[in-house]
Amino acid sequence: MPIYRPVADHALLVDFGTTITEATHAEVLALDQALAADPCKGLRETIPAFVNLLVDFDPLLTDHAEVEAHLRGLTLRQGASAEPVLREVLITYEDAPDLQEVARRTGLSREAVIAAHLSGDYKVFLYGFSPGYAYLGGLPEPLRLDRKPSPVRGVPAGSVIIAGAQCLVTTLTMPTGWWIIGRSPTRILTGDPARPFLFDVGDRVKFRRIAGPLPGVQE
């Protein structure tokens, strides 16, 4: 059973567990979908994460107890939703400052790192941190490394970075302690007002290799 935790005057955090698993994340998405289909009074937004869903509401229209009662009354249909959408992200492994170091730390050849990365079946677990930062779970076991001891500044947008079981395509120039293994011309912030973000949470993602380097990439 989930745990309902009040957050300030305007939100409820629904916790389904403490560790990241596919099953827990499926419960988060099931509640998110059920609430979208049958919203409670005063609902402003829901934010799915790895193990919980934050439900933000207007305290002038409802309160924590009412929202919790509504959530308890929802019927969750896990896995009943349609096949997840598969999205393709292009990647070049040229201009990848950390590829050699990732190979060294994993004991794999450069090409084996690339093959392992391309073999991954990724899933969008959540957006977080900054606009369009989609956390992809499902990085193959051999590539899972702790993050760097300290972040590197000025990592350009479009970098493909990995840490732990996660992979991410950056959308802004930002510091990161993750390992930079490639660059992608695929835009997660699409610039299309009708669909500003490429992924929905729950989408599946495959990487497809292209020849690089990309034009205009700044080191």
């Binding site: 957050v7 300030a8 955090l13 403490t18 790895f50 919980n52 934050l54 933000d56 956390y135």
Partner: peptide, 10 residues
């Protein structure tokens, strides 16, 4: 280190 989750203004 808890699994990343939503945070709010405040």
């Amino acid at each position: 280190s808890i699994p990343s989750e939503a945070i709010l203004r405040g």
